[in-house]
Simulated assay, not measured.
Amino acid sequence: MRILLVEDERHLAEALEQVLSRNNYSVDLAFDGEEGLYQALTGIHDIIVLDIMLPKRDGLSILEELRGKRISTPVLLLTARGETEDKVIGLDSGADDYLAKPFQTTELLARLRALGRRKGEVQVKNLSTYADLELNPHTLELKVNEKSYHLTLKESQLLEILMLNHDLTVSPGSIIEKIWGFEGDAEESHVQVYISFLRKKLSQMESKARIQTHRGVGYMLTVSKES
């Protein structure tokens, strides 16, 4: 299970990363609000642990933007303040749970397990769309107009990354990190193989979307200019 931890106190973030890693979680770290929002929008995470008080952008505005973009990844809010008002605002903004600092790591782990179970029990319909593509990352179903195709998990994850970053070049290294993680043994050739698979399926489905290769830089999902 992959966790995005957005926390500006580096010593706390790094300590939590060690605890989570020992409990078999993969962890992506962000130390300010802008980086946290970027990773939340472009990455694939099972749970987001989000501090409210952050530099550059606060956690509540990040949460509101994620929910506004129909990103339903479970969010656990962290804050040094324990006032009821903060809890109400956070939960009303779309948070799934709330944990006030200081807290015991055992409680954090218990809440993450609960959120993980909840995510598995409730399959939220959170569709990614671009051009004529409609991807359901939960069922792995890709639709183009009246045609549908069942993707593999890796194909779905890769296409979702490209759709979330459409018209932007995504590096192979970023793709490997998001899909296979730092500890995986995937190489750039793995990405090339899955890009090839996706191109064939988009062609078979007669989609207007195309995956361009920017040699030495990465891949971009864009719309064909052909009529």
Rank of each mutant, 00 (worst) to 15 (best):
T105Y: 12
L127S: 04
L115Q: 10
S128E: 13
E35S: 14
V191G: 01
A13K: 01
Y25V: 11
G90W: 06
L142R: 04
T152Q: 11
R118T: 11
L108W: 11
G173C: 03
L140S: 07
K208T: 06
H138N: 13
S61N: 12
M220E: 15
L202D: 02
T42S: 14
H11I: 14
S203Q: 09
L12G: 02
R10N: 05
N136T: 03
R22S: 14
L198I: 15
Q123M: 06
Y98C: 05
D32S: 04
T84C: 00
I161E: 09
Q192F: 05
D92S: 15
D92L: 09
A15L: 14
R70Q: 15
L133Q: 07
G94T: 10
E141S: 04
I52V: 15
L91G: 10
I47Y: 01
S207D: 04
A80F: 06
V217G: 00
T84D: 07
V193A: 13
L109R: 11
E134M: 13
E146W: 00
V49C: 04
V122R: 12
I48N: 05
N165F: 05
E9N: 12
R113G: 11
T73M: 08
G184N: 11
E177D: 12
L37N: 02
R111M: 05
H138S: 14
A209L: 01
G184K: 10
S93I: 08
L158Q: 00
W180E: 08
D132A: 11
A13N: 02
E177S: 10
D132S: 11
G181E: 11
E226C: 03
L198T: 09
S196F: 08
H214R: 09
K101A: 15
S207Y: 01
G216Y: 10
H11R: 15
S224A: 12
L140K: 15
T152A: 08
E206W: 00
L164G: 04
P55S: 07
E121K: 13
L78F: 14
K178L: 11
T73A: 12
W180F: 15
G184Q: 11
G82M: 10
L99G: 04
A30S: 14
P172D: 08
L112K: 04
